[in-house]
Design a protein around this nucleic acid. Structure first.
Lengths: 234, 234
DNA sequence: TCTATATGCGAACGCCGTTCGTGTCAAGTA
DNA sequence: TACTTGACACGAACGGCGTTCGCATATAGA
């Protein structure tokens, strides 16, 4: 129970328990909220509140909410270990890196949404990951252009998959609602001329949380399979 | 110049120029704003304003902003023609459909962002597209599960690509800013131990609006290449 | 000790989606 | 024709958001 101070009370110069703000501290606090309550809970107000100050104070250390988002994302990628490159296992190692990225993004629900609008990679960890993937693709025999395009597609798909997964698992959409939607879809399709959607009707069982990682692996395998074929033809 | 009516003036029963609201009209109006000013301009207030009413009135015809988003998206997909299926050209036809989807999404800047959180496809046109792609994949020799996974990955990637493209081209991020960011990235990389990022440093020229569709085609070719290989092995 | 500069941050602006309660109109009833 | 009733439209307000402005305070310098 917070009780307001009597009017004659003066605060000490700086509350001992309140460390100096810094960019570092702002980002760390934001990450705490992100991990606990998801990206939508990370607002300037909420971060400021957690630091026992007002939103305006954050702008001294972070120029933007967008910048804060990027800083959080880069830090999260920093937690993902990169394997020692081994040219013979290039495809496996690419998969390993992307799996790590997904895992990290899922641990911070909704961060993928942010990754998303960060068009130009600037953070040091984003660069490290980009370079690692590119180097592996080149080691696999791809040209620079091919590696660039492939890296782009892989990162795009990985972010997309991670975002889908985090929306699904975090509270952003509740299971009951999704189930209802699925049922409505089935009902709708069944109400139409029989067999208007022969394939769609059989799909229900393939999409659930259990199959999520299978879908990811499948997509990677297909894409990397295509790449190997291309590299072999070079 | 709008002059307020004198207090004794009564409006006629219903302004002749103001047609009855309807779900149809709401969606159509929203699409107009979307096409003109992008998804972020489509707010309940803005749509209501365009219909010369208050935001509360829209809720009689649309239960949600989310529902409005879904309705817009489904309608946009409705504009994309589906080819007459030809089993021999299944891969080409899949590409054709996805290209159509991208084109439609780019015409309505930012709509891909919406497509994005629509986890369960319910709209009739979304279903039609899903069925068409699935049918082609099955015609290509894939099992139901393989087709399901492949369709999922393709749609995920297509939305991701379209979203990236629309952010790039619509005013959501201006070119000067992107260029600045790119330059900062280069400077940063050059400031590090030489050749810490040998591949990333050479990347600049591959990412621009001109290469966008090349990147899309490349990704599709790789993925479909992997699929064909899989189908051949079946 | 007094002044000048720098910093912290409360309050406010203009957006957003959504809800509630009221005022208005049209159809039904006497 | 006059009144009642039910449904609908929608203005205003709520609680959120990112961001800015300018004042009050605290620190450093004279």
């Amino acid at each position: 129970m917070e009780v307001p101070n009597p009017p004659w009370h003066r605060e000490p110069r700086r509350r001992a328990s309140k460390p100096q703000l810094s960019r570092e501290l702002v980002v760390k606090t934001a990450l705490g909220i992100l991990a606990a309550d998801g990206i939508d809970a990370v607002s300037m107000r909420r971060v400021a509140q957690a630091l026992d100050t007002g939103p305006a104070s954050l702008y001294a250390h972070v120029s933007n909410k967008d910048e804060l988002d990027e800083l959080m994302f880069d830090r999260i990628l920093g937690e993902v270990p990169l394997p020692q490159p081994d040219a013979d296992r290039w495809a496996d190692q690419v998969k390993e890196i992307l799996r790590g990225q997904v895992k990290a993004m899922l641990a911070y629900p909704g961060i993928a949404k942010v990754a998303w609008r960060t068009m130009v990679p600037v953070g040091p960890n984003v660069l490290r990951h980009g370079e690692a993937v590119l180097a592996l693709l080149r080691a696999g025999g791809l040209s620079l252009e091919q590696a660039a395009f492939a890296g782009d597609a892989l990162s795009l798909y990985t972010k997309a998959y991670a975002y889908e997964g985090s929306v699904w698992s975090s509270g952003e959409v509740d299971q009951a609602d999704v189930a209802l939607r699925g049922k409505q879809m089935m009902d709708y399709m069944n109400s139409l001329p029989p067999q208007a959607f022969p394939n769609m009707l059989q799909l229900g069982s393939f999409f659930s949380e259990e199959t999520a990682s299978d879908r990811f692996e499948f997509a990677l395998d297909m894409f990397l399979g295509g790449l190997s074929h291309l590299a072999a033809g070079n």
